[in-house]
Amino acid sequence: MASLKAGSKFRSAVCDAQVMVIKAPAGEHTLLCGGVAMLTGTETAAAGAAADPAQLGGTLIGKRYVNADESLELLCTKGGQGGMVFDGAALEIKQAKQLPSSD
């Protein structure tokens, strides 16, 4: 369980994926990547931590990931092989906004 604050960073315990929290609901939540809890700050992966082969959907750099009601939004700052799961539900890529380049 972890509290997710806007601006805080998490990294996968089992692949290269890194994310930054854009927004998150208050309270304690579980955030997994590759089936294993993601790490923040000085936390280190538990010995023998291994990815769940069924949880390797991949996380792509530059994509924003959201839960169903979009109360959680994460920006992937480094891609990895693991897929992310928040409170038991897989996160989806937020649809890219078609906006012409304005500056």
Partner: peptide
């Protein structure tokens, strides 16, 4: 603040959307 600028950029620009030859 950082949150203002990050919100603007992440909300309106697609990461790495420029082509190799693009220039502004």
């Amino acid at each position: 603040r950082h949150e203002n600028l990050m919100s603007y950029i992440v909300g309106t620009v697609e990461f790495a959307s420029a082509e190799e030859d693009d220039a502004i």
